[in-house]
Amino acid sequence: MNKLASEGVSLTKQAYGLTEDLMTPNAAVYWIDLVISTALMWGGFWIAATTANLAIGLVAGLVSVLALYRALSFIHELTHLRADETPGFRLGWNALIGMPLMTPSLMYEGVHNIHHIKDRFGTALDPEYLPLSRFTPLKLAGFLFVALLAPLGVILRSAILIPLSFVVPSLRVYVRTKLSALMINPDFVREDLNRWRPEWVAQDVACWLWSWAVIAATVMGWLPVRFVLTGLAIFSVATFVNQARTLVAHHWDNDGSKMTLDEQFLDSVNVPPPNLASELWAPVGLRYHALHHLLPRLPYHNLGKAHARLAQALGADSHYHQASEKGLFEALADLFRRVAQKQPGAEKAAAR
C-alpha cells in the first residue's frame, strides 16, 4: 500500500476514534428541525402567494426557499439512518416533504450509498460524480442552470410517466432504472429492481395522486394560478441553490479511475466556520461534506462538534485541513479557474 493510501486509512481511524461518542442520532433533533423547516416552508409560501406587498413577498419567498431546501436535504440523512434510530421519521418526511414535492425518499435510498462505496466513488458507476472540472465553461454553466427545470421534471414523472408505467411494462422498467434516482451522472442505471420495496411503490402512487389533485384543483379554479406559479418558483430556486452547492461539494478532478480513501477525502470539500452563511446554502450538515465522506454514519447535528475536535486534535500537516474552502463563491471561483486552465490553448495563453 502506498503512503497516500496508508495515510487515508490512518485518518479514518483517527477521526473515528475522536468522534465515536457522536455517532448516535438524536431523534428529537431530527423531528424538531424537520417540523420547523416544514412550517417555515409552507408559511413563507403562503405569504408570498397572497401578499400584495412586493418586498414582503420576496422576503417570505426567500424564507420559503431556504426552508424548503433545508427540509428537502433530510433525504440525504434518510439514506444513512436505520429505521430504529428515528422511529417514523422516514414516513413523516415523505408525508410532509417527499410527496408534496414529488421527490420521495426512494429516489435517494439505494442510490446515494453507492456514492460512498470505495471502489465506485468517482468512477462511471458513481451516480453522484462527474469530472466537472474537465467540462467547458459553457457546459458547466449549463449543468448549473438546468436545475431550474427540476420542478417540471418531477411533475412530468409523477403526473404522466408513473401512471403510464403501470400499464406499459417497458416504461415501468425505464422509470425505475433511469428516472428514480437523484443523480448527476446521466449514464447511471439503478440495479436494484429485484429489491424494489412495496413502500417505494406506495411513494410513487402517492406522488402520482398528489400531482393529479393539484392539477385538477388548478383547472377547476379551486387553486389560484398564483399559488402554483409561486410554488414552482420557490422550488426552482431551491434546486438551483442545491446545484450550486453540488458544484462545490467536490473538486471533481477525477477522470473515472478508482481512488484511494485519502484521494476521495481530498476530492471532497468542507466549508466550516467562521463561514456562517454555509449553514444556509449547505444545510443539514452538507457544509461538512468531506467530513461526511470520512465518517458517513455521523449524524448531521454532530458534524460541527466533530469538525471542531478533529481540527484541534489533528496536526497542521494532516490531510484533514486540506479539505476546507472559505466559502461558496471562493470555491466556485476555484472550480471555474481550474476549468479555464484545462481548456485547449489555456497553457499557451498563460505563457504569453
Rank of each mutant, 00 (worst) to 15 (best):
T230F: 11
S236Q: 11
P224F: 03
L179F: 09
Y174N: 13
N194Y: 14
L156Y: 06
K178F: 13
A202Y: 06
L164P: 10
I160F: 06
R195T: 09
L182A: 13
W222E: 13
R190V: 07
Q203I: 11
N185L: 04
Y174F: 06
V219Y: 10
P198C: 15
R176E: 01
L229P: 13
P163W: 08
W200M: 09
R172M: 07
R226P: 09
P163I: 04
E199T: 10
F240C: 14
L171I: 08
A206T: 08
L209M: 08
R172Q: 11
V214A: 01
I155P: 00
V175F: 03
F240P: 09
A233V: 12
R226E: 04
R176C: 02
E191W: 08
A217Q: 04
L156W: 00
L232N: 03
R172G: 15
R226N: 04
G231H: 01
L229C: 09
N194W: 11
L179Y: 03
V173C: 14
G221M: 10
I184D: 10
S236H: 04
N194F: 10
L144F: 13
L152K: 04
V201H: 13
I155D: 02
M183N: 01
R197H: 03
V173P: 11
V154F: 04
I184E: 11
R176L: 02
T218N: 00
S165K: 15
L193E: 10
P224E: 07
L171D: 08
W212M: 11
L148D: 12
A233R: 02
Y174W: 05
V201P: 14
P224L: 00
N194A: 15
W212V: 01
V175P: 02
A147F: 10
P169E: 00
F145A: 02
E199M: 06
V237F: 01
F166R: 10
L164Y: 09
L179D: 15
G231R: 04
L144G: 12
V175Q: 02
W212D: 02
A150C: 03
W222A: 13
C207Q: 12
L193Y: 11
P224Y: 05
V219C: 06
V241H: 10
F145S: 04
A202G: 07
P198K: 13
G221D: 06
G231C: 00
N185E: 03
I155T: 00
D204M: 13
L209T: 14
A217K: 02
R190L: 15
R190N: 10
L193D: 15
A233P: 12
A233F: 11
G221C: 06
T177V: 13
W208K: 08
L209W: 08
T230P: 07
F235R: 02
V189F: 03
L156I: 14
V205M: 08
M220E: 13
W212Q: 03
V154P: 06
F227G: 12
W200N: 10
M220V: 14
D192E: 05
R176H: 15
A202H: 12
V168D: 14
D192Q: 12
A150S: 13
A238W: 05
V219Q: 06
